[in-house]
Write a protein that binds this DNA or RNA. Structure first.
Lengths: 196, 196
DNA sequence: GTCTATAAACCGATAGAC
DNA sequence: GTCTATCGGTTTATAGAC
């Protein structure tokens, strides 16, 4: 059971779109094997069982997904620019990667403790750590964690409701564009937090 | 295949907590049957197959869940009171019913067109219809649908992140209380929309 | 309407040859 | 490290007696 062979990575990368689209129980080991181009039995030379494969795939997907944030925040000078940079980062990161977003959503509804901790360690904590000080500085009167969740939800819910929004009145195709979300959320927060 | 017998309803009500907790593929017909107190074969006298059972269960769960909103909005006099009433309704409706919330979340990640339309028809559209005018009146400069999604996400993400929030710094148990969410979100929106 | 029995398909995982 | 073959278990769904 090697840890970093070529096929090992190929298996992870092949399984991620499947798990994102159909969920853990919705994907058979045969499906992953077929996508890679091997048989299901061969998978067990790389992973002891399905659950371990899934966990390693999640780890692989969530890893180093937050790399750009620190630089983006550092290059911003005013509080308003830092806020805009943060929102833009959040929208671009999760808006452009449907697989990452689907996995995130599935894990959040599933509620497995071990995998939730993975989610926190790889996604939420690194981001929160980066913006905590900044959040507190621009709005000391708000609870920092609650404000962080509010900012995240403000962005994420536009993506989560994207598949059903088109059935609602007043829908416009521009609602799906990143720039629209960024502008809407940023202007809302600038007002809400009275940022000069 | 009768449509409204006693056991028909019992089956729906027994299946909902299971589907909410384990998802469609995570629940076997045997599981539902055992909870009701019959055998799996007997289920097929009430539903043609598993998928139909699931759809009828969803319909049953989402039905008439929005009844109280109109009255709450009508009893509020000032815009600020109406906003508070709306947020309170949203928090109480989805905060007190874990099953409804889980089903909603699962359907939003799953993305099946037919069931998404059910979600819109039973939940999002009735609520949006009720608040659309009110939203537009208190903030004409914002896109009404985007603002609606923002308000919904502002509330819902506090629930969606509840299972993982406790692993983040600055967490306090009070973050899980309805009153905390209501106050936080309402005050944020009052500022954001410059409501007198 | 519910039961027992069972069909038919699918699933995760293993054994053993190469 | 991958293959073929297969085991044991579970699943949806049906047939037929009561």
């Amino acid at each position: 059971m090697p840890k970093q062979s070529k096929t090992y990575i190929k298996i992870l990368e092949a399984s991620l779109p499947l798990f994102a689209a159909f969920g853990y129980k919705g994907v058979a080991m045969r499906d992953i094997a077929n996508t890679v181009g091997i048989t299901a039995a061969a998978l067990y030379n790389h992973f002891p069982n399905k659950e371990a494969l899934y966990f390693k795939a999640l780890e692989y997907a969530f890893d180093a997904q937050v790399a750009g944030l620190a630089a983006m925040l550092a290059s911003a000078e005013t509080p308003r620019q830092r806020l805009a940079a943060f929102i833009e980062f959040w929208v671009e990161t999760f808006g452009s990667d449907v697989i990452l977003r689907a996995l995130l959503q599935r894990e959040m509804t599933d509620g497995d403790e071990t995998r939730l901790k993975l989610l926190v360690r790889h996604v939420f904590f690194p981001v929160y750590e980066e913006v905590e000080e900044f959040i507190h500085s621009l709005s000391p009167q708000h609870d920092p964690l609650m404000l962080f969740i509010s900012m995240a939800g403000l962005v994420m819910y536009h993506f989560e409701t994207a598949p059903l929004r088109k059935f609602l009145p007043d829908f416009k195709p521009s609602h799906d564009e990143h720039a629209t979300v960024i502008n809407h959320v940023t202007s809302l927060l600038i007002q809400a937090l009275s940022i000069p």
